[in-house]
Structure formats: structure tokens, C-alpha cells
């Protein structure tokens, strides 16, 4: 309301005729710019502290365990099911074209290039993004972050940097793990309708796969991990007072992280296409 009045007075002072709707748009645009600057400052602080002295290695290892090890079950189930579904859905079309021997390599390339990284990142955006948003949000609300600052500990260095680095490292590893299980799921599905040995399936699968398929996928997984952790930590770290804000932080962290994963994927695909 105060901002609304300020914009209106500013316009009046310079004889600019603004309707109420224009004033509201100006206020929300200003808020958007302030938020953007806030995000920029946060990311700058994270990067500056990443390379500063006194890295919290124990906390980093703890986060690697939390993010990597504790996501294995979820990623295993997802990976196998994606492989199964891809194979079961592609098979009839390939049979129609008499190209059923292309099935393993087609499934593998789809998994490595796109399905593995994106599905893993989206699952992790839900699991890890929300947990970071909620955890840091509740730490903010219950003054634990303030207590850290008073103890002469930089909360960005202790809480945010290890989470961002661990997520950036763990998402590519989880992606590779999901790819492997997806290929296994593909082999299982291929055996439902046909009969193919694991060795033959793998030989056919990797016949057409090259390093150029794998490397961009791994690189974009790094960025997916970084984006998920940065969004989760930012939303939690900037939660306002009150328990409601913890829920809001967790929720917006998931939504924003998922959207950004898709957005980063779009950019990555465009760049890979140029190579």
C-alpha cells in the first residue's frame, strides 16, 4: 500500500497521468526487479563463499549422503519404470517398420540424452528442493540461522554452499544410475514380448551410443543439480516469519526448481544441437 502511494505521488509530482491499473503494474514490476536483485545477490554470495577459505567438508559429506544415498530408492524405481515404459511403448511402432533390432539403442539413446537427466532432475526437484526449502525455512523461522550468525558463523557458508555443491555433484551421479537402471528396465520389457539375452541387448544398445550423447547430458545434470539446490536454499533462507512461510518456501521451491530444470534443458538442447 505504501509503495502504491509512493508510485502515485511520484507520477503526480511529474505530471504523469497514470491509471490505477498502471500504478499497480508499476508496483509489481518494481517488486519483480527487487526480487531479481535479491536472487542475484544470493547467488553471488554463494559463489563467493564457495571459493572462500574454511570449506565445511563434514557438512558437505553429510549433504552428499542425504541427497545421494537417500534418493537411491526413489531413483531406482523411477529409472526401471521409465526403461520399461519406453520399451513397451516403442516396440509396436518399431515392429511395424521391421526395425525391432533398433529397440535397445533407441531406448538407450532416449534415456541417456533426455529421459534420464530430466526425469531424475524433476524427481529430485520434488524431493530435494522441497526438503531444502522446508529445512532452511524452519531454521529461519525458529531463529536457528540468526543463532548461527551470532556464533560468528556465516550461514551461507555452513548451510547453503555444502548443499549446492553436494546437489551439483550428486544429481549427475544419480542420473547415470537412473540411466543404467533404465537400460535394465528396457531389457526386462524387451523380454516380456520377445527373448533377448542381456549381452545382445547391451551390445545393440551401445552400438549407436557415443560419448557425444553422454557428455552434454552429464553437463546439463550438473546445472540441474545447481539450480535445484540454489532455488531450494534461496526460498528457505528468505522465508519470512511464521510457520506458514515454511510451507510456502517448500512449495515454491519445488515449482520454481521444476520450471527452471525444464528451462535449462531447453537451453542445453539448443546448445547441444549446435555441436
Amino acid at each position: 500500500m505504501q509503495q502504491y502511494k509512493r508510485v502515485k505521488n511520484y507520477a503526480r509530482g511529474r505530471s504523469i497521468a497514470l491509471t490505477d491499473t498502471s500504478v499497480e503494474h508499476t508496483v509489481s514490476f518494481k517488486k519483480f526487479l527487487v526480487n531479481l536483485a535479491d536472487v542475484f545477490l544470493f547467488v553471488t554470495q554463494v559463489f563467493r563463499n564457495t571459493f572462500a577459505r574454511g570449506f565445511e567438508f563434514r557438512e558437505f559429506l553429510k549433504q552428499c549422503f542425504q541427497i545421494g544415498n537417500k534418493s537411491l530408492g526413489l531413483i531406482s524405481i523411477t529409472g526401471i519404470i521409465i526403461g520399461l515404459v519406453l520399451t513397451i511403448q516403442s516396440r509396436p511402432v518399431l515392429v511395424d517398420f521391421g526395425a525391432v533390432n533398433m529397440l535397445p539403442s533407441m531406448v538407450t539413446i532416449s534415456l541417456i540424452r533426455e529421459m534420464g537427466p530430466v526425469i531424475t532432475a524433476l524427481i529430485c526437484a520434488g524431493k530435494i528442493g522441497s526438503s531444502m526449502g522446508a529445512e532452511l525455512g524452519s531454521m529461519r523461522v525458529t531463529e536457528q540461522i540468526d543463532a548461527m550468525e551470532v556464533s560468528s558463523t556465516n550461514p551461507i557458508k555452513f548451510l547453503v554452499v555444502p548443499r549446492v555443491l553436494a546437489c551439483t555433484l550428486m544429481i549427475p551421479l544419480l542420473t547415470l544410475y537412473a540411466d543404467a537402471l533404465g537400460i535394465f528396465g528396457g531389457w526386462l520389457a524387451a523380454n516380456i514380448k520377445g527373448d533377448i539375452s542381456a549381452v545382445l541387448f547391451l551390445t545393440q544398445a551401445f552400438r549407436d551410443v557415443e560419448f557425444i550423447d553422454l557428455i552434454p547430458a552429464v553437463i546439463k545434470s550438473f546445472f540441474f543439480g545447481m539450480v535445484i539446490a540454489l532455488v531450494g536454499c534461496y526460498k528457505g533462507y528468505h522465508a519470512s516469519a511464521g510457520t506458514e512461510s515454511v510451507g510456502v518456501a517448500a512449495n515454491t521451491a519445488v515449482v520454481m526448481a521444476s520450471l527452471l530444470v525444464i528451462f535449462v534443458d531447453l537451453i542445453a538442447v539448443q546448445i547441444t544441437d549446435l555441436l
Binding site: 524452519s138 525458529t142 531463529e143 536457528q144 540468526d146 543463532a147 548461527m148 550468525e149 551470532v150 560468528s152
Partner: peptide, 20 residues
């Protein structure tokens, strides 16, 4: 500021114990 803070103790209303 950190040097000054090292000489000050702060008991928060909620105690602010680290949950983890």
C-alpha cells in the same frame, strides 16, 4: 563484527537449538 559477536552471548526466545 564477528570479533565483537564472539564476546556476546544471545539466548533466543525459542532457544534456537539446531534441530539436526
Amino acid at each position: 563484527l564477528d570479533d565483537i559477536r564472539k564476546r556476546i552471548g544471545f539466548l533466543f526466545q525459542s532457544a534456537a537449538l539446531y534441530d539436526s
